[in-house]
Amino acid sequence: MQSLEPYLAEHPFLKGLEPNHLKILAGCASNVQFDVGQFILREGEEANNFYIIRHGKVAIELFAAERGAITIQTIGAGEILGWSWLIPPYQWRFDARAIEITRAIALDGKCLRTKCEQDHNLGYELLKRFAHVIALRLEATRLQLSDVYGVHP
């Protein structure tokens, strides 16, 4: 089986990571595929993975009894799905569902949490990268909520 290390090393999210850290990540990584409509993660369930999307499209959804599933955001190739594995209580806050056939690299967050506790440099590097992703998502969400296209007298 081909190692995922070269792919991970090239990915913008992990660029610049030390080779020994990449090796650890590759050891926790596996290829996964989701069919259209298949849930990748579900609100309330234990968050033990994160995903680097290689191909396809994923809808991040919130379920409301009166309205059904509300898509909050879609993410696609090259993007990162899931950070709840890093933040206690390690539970998904939203659902994520493939809306196209989606191929991704799944990283075992449970295994990575242990590795990060043992090697704080790895932990810090991953935290920095996730903080960046979270900040970008927060900025996008703020913009999304500010109704910039509305008419404001």
């Binding site: 499209k57 809808a59 909050i72 955001q73 879609t74 993410i75 696609g76 996008a140 913009l143 999304q144």
Partner: peptide
């Protein structure tokens, strides 16, 4: 069934 999110997120796609 298209994309949801602000237009800036499309730039890197």
């Amino acid at each position: 069934c298209g994309d949801v999110g602000v237009v800036t997120t499309l730039i890197r796609r």
